[in-house]
Simulated assay, not measured.
Amino acid sequence: MALIDPAEQINELTGTLNGIKDVLDLGAIRKQIEELEDQVAAPDFWNDQERAQKATSKLSYLQGDVNRIESLGRRLEDLAVLYELAAAEDDADTREEADRELEALRADIDALEVRTLLSGEYDAREAVVTIQSQAGGVDAADWALMLQRMYIRWAERNGYPTEIYETSYAEGAGIKSTTFAVKAPYAYGTLRGEHGTHRLVRISPFDNQGRRQTSFAGVDVVPVVETTDHIEVNEDEVRVDVYRASGPGGQGVNTTDSAVRLTHLPTGIVVSCQNERSQLQNKATAMAVLQGKLLERKRQEEAAALNEIRGEATTSWGTQIRNYVLHPYQIVKDLRTGAEAGNPSAVLDGELDGFIEAEIRWARRQESGADA
């Protein structure tokens, strides 16, 4: 079997990178960067803190996109020179180094290509993630806390800011629920495939007989609402409860009833926020999260209606999507994509990109099949 010429592989990757540039429209991105840099330079830019933070976050993300693309282009050029050097000097070590870089480049370009698949209506939005413990008692509460840490570690690895809006602690260990924001462009499009039930199998640290325990936690991902969204919430349909925020073990973290819980009566959706000391601020944040959940509900209903017209079966968002097995063997496996990893500790420490990329590709194939 003849070896594939490295020059052909480099040309193929260069073509893929050029295609990515066309889809992302590098010229338009650079224009957005210039406009945002002008905004940041304005004397009154920081008068509106929330608007300023969103603008700087978007600027950083877009600059990262451009830097990433330009860096890949330079690496491809350097790689061609490295192969020429290896051939000219007949140097096996240099050839091995070039081969390793070729594989690394292929993986990095494949990962960037996934970004071009995020073209849904709300994919460019920031995300709000809610995690709830389900069946499994104290192990499920601990599992929900482990998932919160996993996603926040993933965000940290990617340089995405997060803000925890609310955490309801369980009595023994772990949490009943938590809601937090991932404040980066395309966070919703990137994470929406995480929506569903996550299953953990392990030897329970809370069982004095050391028995194996299966526990479940649900993950909900919604887009952040923007002013252009037409999501009306009738105040008569929302019950507002205020309470004192608490920490682990029931420890009080606030001396006033500033935490807010909103219940949307027509849908039964419940949202809480306790991260601010002001009741008004917590109510405003909770209302924004509620609107995001209603927006996602609307998107799902529209998708279900289209599928019904096409005569297709719809998939419940509440279905189990991924298994994390720590005993008797170690594996994390996604039930939709087949993606798996043999090192659960790394996954639980935030190494999720392989699963997320597989989800995005899988979802695009599902959507393309539906559009066909």
Rank of each mutant, 00 (worst) to 15 (best):
V233E: 10
R153W: 03
A92L: 08
R364Y: 01
E97T: 14
V221F: 05
K298E: 12
A98R: 11
N11Q: 14
N11C: 05
Q32R: 15
S60D: 14
D236Y: 08
L326N: 14
R297H: 05
M150A: 12
A346K: 13
P185D: 03
G318P: 09
E226H: 11
A339L: 01
L36M: 08
S168M: 13
G354T: 08
A305G: 04
M287C: 12
A339H: 04
F45M: 00
R310M: 07
Q49H: 06
G354L: 07
A107S: 09
E235S: 13
L118F: 02
R365I: 00
R115D: 08
G15H: 02
L72E: 04
N307E: 15
G196L: 11
I231K: 06
A181P: 03
P205D: 11
L3N: 09
E101C: 07
A104N: 09
H327Q: 08
Q366N: 06
E194Y: 09
Q148D: 06
H195N: 14
V81M: 14
F216D: 01
D236H: 14
L191D: 03
K183N: 13
D229C: 02
V201K: 02
H327G: 05
A303N: 06
L265K: 04
A305R: 11
S177Q: 08
D220G: 02
Q134A: 06
G159E: 06
Q251C: 02
G318I: 03
A341N: 15
K31C: 07
K54Y: 07
A170F: 13
K298R: 15
L76V: 01
V260H: 12
A339F: 15
L335H: 04
D334Q: 09
T263K: 04
T256I: 03
R211H: 12
G120H: 13
I131F: 10
P344I: 11
E232K: 12
T227W: 09
D93P: 03
T167F: 14
I29N: 09
G292Q: 11
Q300H: 06
L72Q: 15
Y122H: 05
E50H: 03
V332Q: 01
L352T: 07
G159M: 10
R125Y: 12
R297V: 01
A88G: 04
D5S: 12
Q279R: 10
N307C: 04
E359N: 14
